[in-house]
Amino acid sequence: MAANRYYNGPVSDHFDGTRFFNPGGVEPNGFRDLLRWQFNGQKATWPTTPDPRATVTRPDDSVTGQDLRVTMVGHASMLIQVAGLNILTDPVWSERASPVSFAGPRRVSPPGIRLEDLPRIDVVLVSHNHYDHLDQPTIARLEADHRPTFVTPLGNDVFIRKVAPDARIALMDWGGALDVAAGVSIHCEPAHHWSARGVGDRRKALWAAFVVATPAGRIYHIGDTGFHDGINYRAAAKAYGSFRLAILPIGAYEPRWFMKGQHQNPDEAIQGMLLANAAFVVGHHFATIQLTDEAMNAPERALAEALARHDVDPARVRPLHAGEVFDVPPERNPA
């Protein structure tokens, strides 16, 4: 196998010395399957105008005490405000999720917060290196304006350093933990996904989920994942007990024969919520950038059906649109 130019470390239960993998999991589909999908003629047509439910908001400087607030920027980019900290997840402010500015998946709605309206950013969580999660122009701007701590799995520091050579980067493996403030820690946990930034670098940087433990409760953030028979959700419940909030992908899941291993659908997201003992959920990965076949509003329709199927109160699950704010209620026993 070709050498790994992003990470050089010991073999583990999810790293074979060259590539990372999902233990007992499913590898991403190959090029032939990609072509079969791309030419299947089943891709829904999204609007070219902004989502009418999207807005642009200016967030407060911070929240404290037992308050927990999430503001949607778009796709998997959110501002989490808790315990006096401002945390960004997978920040993408660029027009396209692409290596080039003139082609590739284009956002249909502007970011829900303007970059210049962001409060002081303390921490940036980057779950993996796909272009809809690791956006180098945005990272460069955040570094210049805020000097945050970038928290990311093994190997992804290479892409951050290319545009922010002096950035503070906390590089984490699954099972790692990092104290970021008094009473606040970030934990790196498995997700069932993959990575690639170009040709020939598939699975050479790690992907992950994060748990943010705070005095106001625990937050489980997943940028991308396949359901993986619920294995990672059960492990999270065993390790942490419960969560005040889970931030879960509910979009980018069709066609299932191609996406199932790497992208959960809304029904699987609700199963994951229940397995992880999450009191509330923010749903993301929809209505911003079309990456897969489903229609723009399909994830929300499927989510409503899943909530009814699993007898979950819809008030516990918020699929957020750009600019929408969710003040998460105090944690209750989800049982």
Rank of each mutant, 00 (worst) to 15 (best):
K162F: 07
S185M: 08
I219R: 05
Y220A: 12
V211T: 13
A216Y: 00
I160F: 00
F159M: 11
A196P: 00
V212W: 07
W174H: 14
R168E: 11
D179V: 10
H221C: 11
D166P: 00
G217N: 03
I186H: 01
R202C: 07
A213M: 11
P215H: 06
L206R: 11
A181K: 04
A213P: 00
P190I: 02
A208P: 01
Y220C: 09
T214A: 14
V211N: 09
A170Y: 03
A182W: 00
A205H: 07
L206C: 14
I219L: 14
A205Q: 14
A216E: 04
D173V: 01
I219E: 03
G198C: 10
G183F: 10
C188K: 03
Y220H: 15
G175F: 08
W207V: 06
A208R: 03
G176S: 15
R202K: 13
P165I: 06
D179N: 12
F210S: 01
V163T: 07
L171H: 05
P215C: 10
C188P: 04
G217E: 01
V184M: 09
I222H: 09
A208D: 05
V184T: 14
W207G: 03
E189Y: 15
R197L: 08
A167G: 09
P165E: 06
H221D: 09
C188H: 06
V211C: 11
A216W: 04
A170H: 02
V184C: 13
A170E: 00
I169P: 01
